[in-house]
Design a protein around this nucleic acid. Structure first.
Length: 270
DNA sequence: CCCTGAACCTGACCGC
DNA sequence: TGCGGTCAGGTTCAGG
């Protein structure tokens, strides 16, 4: 469910409430997530939280003695509530804090994870091979162009590959390709340098603009305070199958690529 | 190394 | 109302 903007929105919603505090009580109610919740999680009581940062779609809770990785998978969310707020279905991990707040990890589908990464989180197996952050300088047209040469997979699949660049999920891959006028079916190795320049710009633009608006709420994404994101209004193709292209009016098509839905304009995207 | 498809799991929705 | 099928924002892993 959450792509990078939703993860970053969640991080920003949580961090100011918790930095400088320590957990007072920890409850793992259902540790059966994508991977079992690390046993170290229950030992975090009294350790001070120094910061909450992000790498790819992982939210990093940096404690004085190490880092806790939290991934929201397809349906996960983090909420900050009062400790006396009743638990909801699928509140799998609950941390209470010195500031009298409760952090709840909720995830109906349980594709997310809560893992202890110790002192050097960047060496963790799930992190160490990830590609560059899309909003940082290392991700640029030269990089993407060089990396794509001789690749036979579709350009859409390519930009969604976390080893190429992190944080570009299904919604924003669709949107960035539309904005760049690139067919999602085109082979990555066949995209021109000029188009790669556009694509990098548009991936950055769409992610940044969505972050600015609190992410995209489709069905269930809510910010840490329970309010929705507002980016949905600005989606040009995702979820608009059969509707007219905002640019040329032609009917938008939907296909499936690697089992993910792709919506695009066959006139504007070549 | 590259590519594809299956797998993990719950819930919402649609047509009958 | 109920039932079966399909789909959903992610990512790893096995196998070719």
């Amino acid at each position: 469910m959450p792509e990078l903007p939703e993860v970053e929105t969640t991080r920003r919603g949580v961090e100011p409430h918790l930095v400088g505090q320590a957990p007072t009580k920890i409850q793992v109610r259902n540790g059966s997530l994508r991977w079992p919740v690390s046993p170290e999680v229950e030992d975090l009581v009294d350790y001070k939280l120094l910061s909450v940062t992000r790498r790819a779609k992982y939210i990093l809770f940096n404690f004085e003695h190490g880092t806790l990785l939290v991934h929201l998978g397809m349906s996960g969310s983090l909420r900050i509530v009062s400790p006396n707020e009743p638990l909801k279905k699928h509140d799998h991990v609950v941390l209470e804090w010195t500031g009298n707040l409760s952090l709840r990890f909720n995830d109906p589908r349980r594709f997310g994870c809560v893992l202890w990464a110790g002192e050097s989180w960047a060496d963790h197996g799930l992190i160490k091979n990830l590609g560059p952050e899309p909003l940082e300088g290392e991700f640029n047209a030269d990089y993407l162009f060089d990396k794509s040469r001789s690749r036979k997979t579709s350009i859409k699949q390519f930009v969604m590959d976390g080893n190429v660049v992190v944080g570009v999920g299904n919604i924003y891959a669709n949107e960035a390709l539309f904005m760049s006028g690139i067919s999602p079916k085109r082979l990555a190795g066949n995209v021109s340098k000029a188009k790669m320049v556009l694509l990098v710009e548009n991936i950055r633009f769409v992610l940044q603009r969505s972050i600015d608006q609190g992410g995209t709420t489709l069905r269930d994404f809510l910010k840490a305070d329970g309010s929705p994101g507002y980016f949905k209004q600005q989606l040009n193709v995702y979820g608009r199958k059969g509707l007219p292209c905002v640019s040329c009016g032609h009917e938008l098509k939907e296909i499936r690529q690697n089992n993910r839905s792709t919506v695009y304009c066959s006139k504007c995207q070549r």
